[in-house]
């Protein structure tokens, strides 16, 4: 994922929020609100008339 900018910004945000919680509950290093690859939009196909015919909702296998 190439959202370094978001990561930096949200890390800052995490740091800010962290101070409101007890010290032993550290917030994650990963950025809040991560947009994940959308298999549904990747797999959808349209027929010749432009109609959306179908989508699958998950990868069949994750070999690559």
């Amino acid at each position: 994922m190439n959202n370094t900018k978001t990561i930096n910004k949200t890390k800052l945000l995490s740091k800010k929020l962290e101070k409101y919680f007890p010290i032993n509950y550290s917030l994650t290093q990963s950025p809040p609100l991560i947009r994940v690859r959308n298999i549904m939009s990747e797999s959808q196909f349209h027929n010749d008339n432009g109609y959306l015919v179908g989508v699958i909702s998950k990868p069949i296998s994750n070999i690559f």
Binding site: M1, I34, V36, R37, I39, M40, S57, K58, P59, S61, N62, I63, F64
Partner: peptide, 24 residues
Amino acid sequence: TKKSLSSTSKEQYSLDRFAFNIDT
């Protein structure tokens, strides 16, 4: 892709392979 494929190709895990949708 430079990767190779065989019957024994293993599953990969990373954040961007997960499926976050209602059906799944």
